[in-house]
Design a protein around this nucleic acid. Sequence first.
RNA 1: GCACCGGUAGCUCAAUCGGUAGAGCAGCUGGCUCUUAACCAGCGGGUUCGGGGUUCAAGUCCCUGCCGGUGUACCA
Length: 499
Amino acid sequence: MIEENSGDDEGELRRRRLEKLERLRAEGVHPYPERFERTHTLAQASALAEGARVRVCGRLVLMRDMGKLTFATLQDLDGKLQVSLTRDGLAADPEESKRIYQRFTKLLDLWDFVGVEGELYRTKTGELTVKTEAWTFLGKAIAPPASKYKGTKGELNWRKRYVDLVANAETRERFKLRSRVVRALRDFLDRHGFQEVETPILCNQASGALARPFVSHHNAMDMPVVLRIAPETYLKRLVVGGYDRVYEMARCFRNEGMDPSHLQDFTMLEFYAAYWNYEDNMAFTEALVRHVVQEATGGLVIKRGEHTIDFSEPFPRRSMREVILEHSGLDIDALPDAASLRRAIFEKKVDLENPDAGRGSLIDQLYKRTARPKLLQPTFIVRHPIDLSPLARRSDDDPKTADRFQLVVDTWEVVNAYSELVDPVDQRARLEEQAGLRGAGDEEAMELDEDYLGAMEHGMPPISGWGMGIDRFVALITDSPNLRDVVLFPLMKPAGGED
RNA sequence: GCACCGGUAGCUCAAUCGGUAGAGCAGCUGGCUCUUAACCAGCGGGUUCGGGGUUCAAGUCCCUGCCGGUGUACCA
């Protein structure tokens, strides 16, 4: 829709490239050939010794033409390699060789694709280089390239990730790291007996989290559908069905505000392990996180802005009460109801967004306000108020808290997990309470999910469930300020505004 | 939602108090057989995000719309 250019309206740079494309055709060179047989990727060729013969290909990203000798740099996702051409080294006949040489220097533009065949040698400065004996045109780029050493920045990198990936090596590294994270997570779970499954994204009902869904409509069935906000209740149905250890890499959708640490479309890994409690799960989590950080980054200490985060030490386990007491001076156990807690918070002059909320929410707000901003090193926070955890098991020791933990790293909640509530009677009561809140106008309160309650009535073993925000975790270990930096194509409003 | 900041050449950026837009790279022409962001000489390139206003004069000031960022709120 932006490409309505014609004739004189075309950008000069684009026009010149189209002219070269036509000249290539006129010389009998197909500007978009169908294939090229390579012997090595650029990274593979870079690892070879001098004297090896290679056929390599990639994007032309730099060219240094010195008259009778030209150096050029090819790049692909994983590497780059220098090639050289001489004016008389491309054919037996000097005139023919010169013609082939000049086709390269005159008709190739940066970001075109090219294939090269020749022998590896080292230049005077020691760089491994292909001495080109023959080259093949592999694809013309019409759009002008980014600055070859400043790359691209900002919005353009999100809107045109393909440009970002070519122009910025850090971007290529960041997304390769994301792939390693996902692979390491799957490897670890698979090795511990977990099975990967897929559950519905289009659902009748949004369940498993406190969030507003995206709503759509199914035409043939003439019924409303929602996009899932979490895979949780489906994975637990599978535990009912006999899956002892199950996980899903689940794309989830929440129709809420966006900021650097929230996307409307994100990836959550959830797993469920029968016969585990949340403490078993904490031990497993610690091993898993350490494995993934090691595999993905090659170490256990990462840089995060000003400070360093060390995953090698045991992660301390601290109760919500403990960290709130430490950072606000308030003992929530001594303030058993909403009114007394609210008064104490007021006396401490702590400013809350929603001071009229119930006790559980007050505790949560207090925690996020006072304690969480201080949690830098990996820390397990345990024993959350029960009314913030409608799907979690009530603690046997303290009915006001849930058998739950979160892993907090550099103030970000990376993992949320608990011993699952498996008692269908208690679950019905808790969901009815949520439904009451919903009736009272809380749009994020959970809906009464009869289908799930029905599944629970068929019997569940003890279960511990677990969820990790993959985008957040990757952003954390790549020191990315915005979640959009670790998502290949983040949702943006269309550029250009109206009409 | 609200508050603040930003949008200038293909890319990355500059432009003092309001005085009529500039650099590097990319492009074009020429030179150069060991370059590394090659280098040297010369040339072309602008709806300053869109619309309106103030002014002799607007990239700059005012209003408005679009897009983006950051902070704040809920969530992972």
